[in-house]
Design a protein around this nucleic acid. Structure first.
Lengths: 215, 215
DNA sequence: ACCTGAACACCGTTCAAGT
DNA sequence: ACCTGAACACCGTTCAAGT
């Protein structure tokens, strides 16, 4: 995924679309140097602009991070949907496992995005009435909605025992979320480093959860 | 939990036990100002020492963070053990739920420690031959061992269907780990903010998992 | 052996000034 | 309306020098 950052022409005074360029620069920094490498100043430099210029477009660093996280959520949702579609099946259990695989796979391929999406910084402020964070929240709901939709239809069609849709979906989410973080933060000491290992584990987890929630 | 940091006496030249004082200062900063507030310079100031002094005791910031994480793991293990003991039961399902409750409760009460323990920074270096990180790793294994021990005895005694002890334990860990982070990072929008809510959720999760792994 | 002070290369953020 | 340059208060880290 080669990320292109539109630089300001040195002779020009205005950039044109600095906001977008800064988000792209942020994604690039995240991918190449990780969370620690994501700074407002470095993003400004990539866009060919002074370090104070970003403040015309983002209130603070958190606002840029929120914009990046929104893109990240879209990618995460896409990763889950792709696995489900590749399946070409209507089986609820298989779909749930596929979604989980898509989730964990995304985290492993893009740990920088993943940590940024779910990191501490962005969300606490989301309670404030801030239009920028509302769309971030919506992107998050859409990602969760993939899992929730499967659980909901599974219960409606009688494949899953009826119960609290949110609680069951949250359990599935917690399971893949926890696994993803334990892996990318290195707590599993490289025990899960191939796609096959991820598949084995998510399928195993899926089997446990499904026995617990199936009719 | 009032944390005491031994300050160097201004007239003295040496501190006496600066290493320990820096760890205490770090725990204090973490508790009061969160992960972002934990800096080597601030810890040095709390200990009444110049900002360069810590480097006599810790190779870099990561080494201090690792020392703090080790203390954090001990507290996490204690939180799980306390819930299990309060139970006074030998029932495997109840013990598993109690351990999960202890895990999530600790994360909610000490989000700063929790994030530090499991954060990105510390562990990647753990693969290097570094004696300081070996004891950190051991502290982590002990925490995981609480869950693993319950699963292992459950299988041995026939309460849980026999299978891969590590995989089932890892599923339990992922479940409480994911839930903890989703809550403290604010993704559940305050839906789980009381001890009763935590209990309800961990018990619900426990029921699902247990139906999935019980005989 | 342990600590200090100055220095360097970074941060985020603000603000007067320039175009 | 948008951007720059200097400034401020922070970082982590290094290193010669002091005790």
């Amino acid at each position: 995924m080669a990320i292109r950052v539109t630089r300001k022409r040195p002779d020009a005074y205005q950039h044109g679309d600095l906001r977008r360029a800064l988000v792209q620069a942020g994604l690039k920094l995240l991918g190449e140097r990780g969370v620690a490498g994501l700074s407002l100043r470095a993003a400004a430099e990539l866009a060919g602009v002074s370090h104070a210029a970003p403040y015309r477009h983002f209130r603070d660093k958190g606002a840029l991070v929120a914009a990046i996280a929104e893109e990240g959520f879209t990618l995460l949702t896409g990763s889950m949907r792709r696995e489900i579609e590749a399946l070409g099946s209507r089986d609820v259990s298989a779909k749930l496992r596929a979604a989980g695989r898509g989730y964990v796979t995304f985290a492993l391929r893009h740990p920088g995005y993943f940590r940024t999406i779910f990191g501490e910084k962005i969300w606490p402020d989301a309670s404030e009435a801030d239009p920028g964070r509302a769309s971030l929240r919506a992107a998050g709901e859409e990602a969760f909605g993939v899992l929730r939709g499967i659980v909901e239809s599974g219960m409606r069609e009688g494949w899953l025992r009826s119960g609290d849709v949110d609680q069951v979906s949250l359990a599935a989410w917690s399971l893949v979320h926890g696994l993803s973080l334990l892996i990318i933060d290195g707590h599993l000491a490289g025990r899960v480093d191939t796609d096959a290992a991820v598949r084995g584990l998510t399928d195993g987890f899926g089997a446990m959860l499904e026995r617990g929630i199936a009719t």
